[in-house]
Amino acid sequence: MRRMIRIRVNGEWRELSVAGNALLLNVLREDEGLTGTKYGCGIGECGACTVRIDGEPVLSCLTLAVAVDGCEVQTVEGLAVDGRLDPLQEAMLDTAAVQCGFCTPGMLMTARALLDETPAPSEQDVRDHMKGNLCRCTGYASIVRAVLEAANRDGGPEMAPKPPALGAPRRSRGAPRTP
């Protein structure tokens, strides 16, 4: 079975012909060329494939593409807007929360979902929300720091609001920064 589906990927409507057994992870990586979303285990254990569907962090390795017909899909490639990094991306770099970087896209998607829902999370909130994203390099401390730091920046009154992203899911505010 093949079927046409319409999904809005990072703000852009796409019409795709997909097989009934096609997984969203492979459709994004292979058909859409969005290789930022990673395969780590294929069975839900590592979080490397996390994307946001209608704002929620979802495992694309366990999601049928046909089952997200009509949905809004955000991948790591959709975080920066017009070349401007999301405050969370900046915070990840500022706190050196990126080593090999293979877990990073999934981490970012889960963390962005957390911050959009809970703008001022506690350290425990961060740990509870993100325990489904494995990282073998960092030992997690720097990632926890990054998320808490980004929360500060998101809410910071001195920051100018970002221009609304075209069709991207609800976004946070933040000003561009250079390293």
Partner: peptide, 21 residues
């Protein structure tokens, strides 16, 4: 300072062997 491959890694642009097409 930001690591040199950092922006590529946080934007999903970094290429790993499994990304080569």
């Amino acid at each position: 300072a930001w690591r040199r491959d950092g922006v590529a890694k946080v934007t999903g642009a970094e290429t790993y062997a499994s990304d080569v097409v």
